[in-house]
Deep mutational scan, measured.
Amino acid sequence: QTVQFNGLEYHFPNPEEAEKFAKKVAKELGGEVRVKDGRWQID
């Protein structure tokens, strides 16, 4: 599972970890999490 933001990609072994990370980062950055092409993106 991949999380993308600021032009970087973070890879996680399972979707739960990816989701948790994506939501944490979005909260800290005040961004929005969305899934695109099977990847988590933070904008």
Rank of each mutant, 00 (worst) to 15 (best):
G7E: 05
T2Y: 10
E32T: 15
E32I: 15
N6F: 08
Q1I: 12
N6I: 04
R39W: 08
G7N: 07
K27T: 09
Q1P: 09
A18S: 01
G30A: 05
K36G: 05
E17A: 11
V35Y: 15
K36D: 07
E28K: 11
A22W: 06
F12E: 01
V25G: 01
V3N: 00
Q41E: 14
F21T: 02
Q4E: 14
Y10E: 01
Q1C: 15
G38M: 02
K36E: 11
Q4L: 15
N14D: 09
E16W: 10
E16I: 10
H11W: 14
R39K: 14
A18W: 01
A26W: 03
L8N: 10
D43R: 07
I42G: 05
E28T: 08
V3L: 03
G31A: 13
W40I: 09
K20D: 12
G31R: 10
Q1L: 12
K23W: 06
R34N: 09
Q1F: 15
E32R: 13
V35P: 03
P15R: 11
N14Q: 04
Q41F: 15
E17C: 14
E9C: 15
F5E: 01
E16C: 14
P15L: 08
K23M: 09
G31I: 13
F5I: 13
K36F: 01
G31Q: 08
K20W: 09
E19T: 01
P13N: 13
K20F: 08
E17G: 03
K24E: 12
G7C: 15
Q1E: 07
G31P: 01
I42L: 04
N14S: 13
F5A: 05
R34G: 05
F12D: 01
N6Q: 09
K23H: 11
K23N: 11
P13F: 08
V3I: 05
K23S: 09
V25Y: 05
V25C: 15
F5C: 13
T2M: 08
V35Q: 09
K23E: 10
E16P: 01
E32P: 04
N6D: 13
L8T: 10
K23T: 10
E28I: 14
P15I: 10
V35E: 08
K23I: 09
D43W: 15
D37E: 08
G38H: 05
K36R: 11
A26L: 07
E28V: 11
W40T: 05
F12M: 01
K27A: 13
Q1G: 11
Y10L: 09
L29I: 14
D37M: 01
G7S: 04
E28F: 11
N14R: 02
E32V: 14
L8G: 07
V33M: 07
K23A: 08
G38P: 03
E16Q: 11
E17M: 10
A18E: 02
Q1H: 14
W40G: 05
H11P: 04
G38V: 01
N6H: 12
K36L: 06
D43H: 12
E19Q: 06
H11D: 06
V35F: 15
G30F: 06
P15N: 09
